[in-house]
Design a protein around this nucleic acid. Structure first.
Lengths: 121, 121
DNA sequence: TCAAGTATGTACCTTTTGGTAAGTACCCTT
DNA sequence: AAGGGTACTTACCAAAAGGTACATACTTGA
């Protein structure tokens, strides 16, 4: 069991590709909220506390161009647009879950380490 | 099944903690090589093609202070130091695997998207 | 008509991250 | 004594990421 991955090749390229897609200060948050269902721009902005319009739009555009998120413009007279996860995006979110789990399980250790880093500099 | 995660709280904090730990241009590569076993500094440097000493050391120090990696100084007369994953680090690497798998499965889509981004700017 | 709300765009600046290049200190081989 | 290897450290600089603030264009309600 532990032997299998001592030689595993399924790591770097795949991981790099994935990290390329999810790195960005607000992307995890955005994915988190979109995971709950399609969300209008304004609603999203209120959910993701602290983002500026520039950042929100920028990250959404990147996620969109990566095929993770879908923008829907309803073409209605008072502007109405929403964003949702594509099936591709949903599969990404599923793959992210173990990482979330790990982070949660070890939240304290990590926080402690972060503290140590801050003070030791 | 699909309903469970529509309200799941196990996401943001855990994910943020994890991303804090693995983000850094060379960290995934380093983790990849250390996953194969303890590695001496110089060996690691030759493996992680393109890193400078400054970066390698910096990222190793951060991983170490986060408890992911362990530095062993053998105190020998011609300098001899190696780095290895702690059990904590090994658990992280395991949690990262689905992400790697996802990236691999969709490498082409991602690459295509990256291409599109480059050209559309 | 004025304020507020919708969803963006853009200019400019700061912070963070990473890169280059050099130095240190110690040792071994030629 | 010169050159190469070990494992770092440091100063300085460039690029990328992110932040602030204001602008746009259109609509609705007061």
């Amino acid at each position: 069991m532990a032997k299998e991955n001592s030689e595993n090749p399924r790591f770097i390229c795949g991981l790099h590709a994935t990290l390329h897609v999810i790195s960005g200060k607000w992307k995890p948050l955005i994915l988190f909220f979109l995971n709950k269902g399609p969300t209008r721009y304004g609603e999203l902005k209120r959910s993701v506390r602290g983002v500026s319009d520039k950042m929100l739009i920028q990250q959404l555009k990147e996620l969109e161009s990566d095929g993770i998120v879908q923008r829907t413009d309803y073409g209605e007279i008072p502007l109405r647009v929403d964003y949702s996860l594509t099936p591709f995006g949903a599969s990404l979110v599923r793959a992210m879950e173990p990482l979330c789990g790990w982070g949660e399980e070890h939240e304290e250790d990590i926080a402690a380490a972060m503290g140590r880093r801050k003070t030791s500099r």
